[in-house]
């Protein structure tokens, strides 16, 4: 398969073959992180911008490590260092960045659609590292890579996603990705956490967590965002834990070898009991490891099709040839 996309904006638009191709490529990249020298020269001389307009630690670090292991040069811009604080619009900021000839922009933004808009506006590739409640494609890819590694397949698996589906970009990307590769997805949460018409995305909805967990191969708990408290979506964290928290007893309803996943950071004792988060079925740290491999694969693939990079290379070649013929 040939990778033809300039951008990775979401899993909604990806075909099954493309998703599998990224996962296969990521599999090949895993080994690099286990070497004595954890670095390959593949993206030497390429510049990647990490443009994070929303707080993030693990995603940013994961992208940063991935870029460094590929020998790319990295520029880090976060909302606190950006001149957007001085009133510059997103459009101007990003235009300035690209005028500096970069190859790839990794963007995290609090508002849905911002990376899509950037991708239309600028020549370098754009990777969506999370846009509002919309998509977080690399997170879903790393989740799928983790599941595939542990279960040796994705097709036919039953995956339960529990929590605030409404406000979760992780859930949306996972729903697109997992259903495309043939897994069956069950989402669970109180009705206030389940967005309208979600069944149309190809999932089953359960309002009782026990029904969602029954027979599951994978249990994915989502973070309850404390900042959404007071909006009357749930009466209290205490009540949420009581009705939807994943405890050891509840986990017994799923398959004995079911994987427990969480995109982090975890609210221990709310969506996930500590003994489940740290238990033998938890693959939460494997997710983090997979994240670097997936992001290396994505950067590698997208840096290969940056139109600008290619045309620049071609013009350099023709200049060189001219110089040689003189």
């Amino acid at each position: 398969m040939n990778w033809k996309r300039k951008d990775l904006l979401g899993l909604e638009e990806l075909k099954k073959e493309e998703i599998e191709f990224v996962l296969d490529t990521a599999d090949s990249f895993r080994e690099i992180s286990t070497r004595a020298i954890r670095k390959v020269p593949a993206l030497r001389g390429r510049t990647i911008v990490l443009f994070f307009l929303e707080a993030s630690t693990r995603t940013r670090v994961s992208f940063e490590l991935a870029a460094k292991r590929l020998s790319a040069d990295l520029v880090n811009i976060s909302s606190s260092t950006s001149s957007m604080l001085k009133g510059e619009t997103l459009k101007d900021t990003i235009r300035n960045i690209t005028a500096m000839e970069v190859d790839l922009v990794i963007v995290r933004h609090g508002m849905a659609g911002a990376p899509h808009w950037l991708a239309r506006e600028i020549e370098p590739g754009v990777v969506n590292a999370g846009d509002g409640c919309h998509e977080h494609p690399t997170q879903a890819l790393l989740d799928m890579l983790t599941i595939r590694e542990k279960k040796k397949k994705l097709e036919g698996l039953r995956v339960a996603i529990v929590g605030d589906i409404s406000h979760s970009r992780v859930a949306r990307s996972n729903i697109w990705g997992l259903t495309k590769v043939g897994a069956s997805v069950v989402v669970a949460g109180p009705p206030t956490f389940i967005p309208p018409c979600i069944e149309k995305m190809g999932v089953t909805v359960k309002y009782r967590v026990e029904e969602a967990l029954e027979g599951a191969d994978v249990v994915m708990a989502l973070r309850i965002q404390r900042e959404r408290q007071g909006k009357n979506l749930i009466p209290s964290l205490r009540e949420y834990r009581k009705i939807f928290g994943i405890s050891r007893e509840r986990l017994r309803l799923s398959k004995p070898d079911a994987l427990v996943m969480h995109p982090g950071p975890i609210n221990r004792g709310i969506e996930l009991d500590p003994d489940v988060a740290d238990g033998p079925q938890s693959v939460i740290l494997d997710q983090v490891t997979s994240g670097v491999a997936v992001r290396m694969a994505v950067m590698y693939l997208l840096c290969g099709v940056g139109k600008e990079a290619i045309s620049r290379q071609l013009s350099a070649v023709s200049k060189k040839q001219k110089a040689e013929s003189l």
Binding site: N2, W3, S28, F29, E31, A297, Y300, L301, G304, V305
Partner: peptide, 9 residues
């Protein structure tokens, strides 16, 4: 090259 060659481990 127009697109990245497939990486094997």
């Amino acid at each position: 090259v127009a697109s990245q060659p497939v990486v094997h481990s």
